[in-house]
Design a protein around this nucleic acid. Structure first.
Lengths: 137, 137
DNA sequence: TACTAGTTTAGAATAATTATAAACTAGCAA
DNA sequence: TTGCTAGTTTATAATTATTCTAAACTAGTA
């Protein structure tokens, strides 16, 4: 379990003031065993369960964007209308199940790429992501 | 170059009435050498250049959806707010350049996957897509 | 303790897409 | 050839996800 101090350091280290909203959101995101796949909407629901101080949806969006910029979360490729994010920032891959619209992590060593093309001239590869879409049946 | 008859057959074979709007859109999409990456917006612009009969944006969306269902085009994975489509329906891969928001096809044999995971129980793999994101510099 | 820059907030604005329902038309049948 | 009908198109309204705005608030410092 990530201590509050660790979370505060994480925020400070990326030039984000540790406000109570950011700390609460960071706890929800990072204080868990498995990686977490979420959208602004699901994060908002998770954070704003009764009992907690309410965090505005605007702050949810701002914070997700700030965490993304800082590299604490990453955006996942989909063909959904919503943006999906992942707390697993290591390069890895996903199954996408269109029936449930759910993503599942694929461990990086479960996929071996034997050959990849050279990037266009003057460009560098930032990231590789394989998405395995499942049949809708 | 695809003849009008071929296009009409293509539409008929997928239970789509060959209306003049669909024929015009199909020509724009399929009557070209290279595969075409587009959004509803770019397709709308391409189709509604001056001189042509105007096709409403609603019909653009309807037709794209219909062509997608019929398997004549496929939707590409991105983390953009717009939906991107590709007239190349064979399984293949893309470079994504975040600076220009442009996608480039990667030929299928340019990528060799040596190992992929088994799909979850009871599920089948429909499609594999690798996206290589380039550095934003 | 007071100041200031960064942050949060509610609400308005925007962008992409989908829904609605009236007018139109392709394809068939009389 | 005409008329019918289900499928299609259209303009417009509605919806959804997200971003913007500017006033109120607060963390960190002086």
């Amino acid at each position: 379990m990530q201590q509050k101090k660790e979370i505060i350091n994480k925020l400070r280290s990326s030039n984000l003031r540790p406000t109570k909203q950011r700390i609460l959101i960071a706890k929800k995101l990072f204080d868990r065993k498995e990686t977490f796949h979420f959208t602004a909407e699901t994060l908002n629901k998770a954070v704003n369960k009764k009992g907690h101080a309410r965090i505005s949806l605007g702050t949810i969006y701002n914070t997700v964007e700030a965490f993304k910029r800082a590299g604490h979360i990453r955006e996942i490729l989909t063909n959904n209308s919503k943006s999906y994010y992942d707390t697993n920032i290591k390069s890895h891959h996903h199954f996408y199940d269109p029936s449930s619209k759910k993503l599942t992590d694929i461990d990086y060593h479960e996929v071996v790429l034997k050959k990849i093309p050279n990037p266009p001239k003057g460009k560098k590869i930032k990231d590789l992501e394989l998405v395995i879409s499942l049949q809708k049946k």
